[in-house]
């Protein structure tokens, strides 16, 4: 288990990296968790969600030293705050929007 402050730093690192990988990402929401970085990222080109957000789980071992697994979901802008979160992620009120800058 990792302290939440450290998890926030790791989440920011992953979020920045994702924003650099996909400039179309407009907003990134972090759902705090002590064992996994959970991010919902808003991309207008994402496939529409069905009844619930689909998050893919990527294992640890990232090249920049981040060794926490991550779960990432891409959603469309109109789905923010509306579509159901993955099981166990809490509610949209638990989300913290990460400011990673814009290109």
């Amino acid at each position: 288990m990792v302290a939440m402050e450290k998890m926030h730093d790791i989440a920011m690192s992953v979020a920045k990296d994702n924003k650099e990988s996909e400039p179309n990402i407009q907003r990134i929401f972090w759902f705090p968790h002590t064992e996994e970085v959970r991010l919902v990222e808003v991309d207008p080109e994402a496939l529409p969600s069905d009844s619930r957000i689909v998050a893919f789980h990527f294992g640890p071992g990232f090249a920049d030293g981040v060794s926490i697994p991550s779960a990432i979901a891409l959603i469309r802008p109109q789905e923010v705050g509306v579509v159901a979160l993955p099981e166990g992620w809490g509610s949209w009120e638990d989300a913290k929007e990460l400011q990673v800058g814009t290109n």
Partner: peptide
């Protein structure tokens, strides 16, 4: 789609294209 705590992934079809789209964020 499988989570660390072992829950069963949802059974619907159509995960592959979504996975490909997400994989651009996969540093591994």
């Amino acid at each position: 789609l499988c989570v660390l705590d072992g829950q069963r992934p949802e059974g619907r079809h159509g995960a592959f294209v979504r996975f490909i789209q997400h994989s651009k964020l996969h540093r591994q």
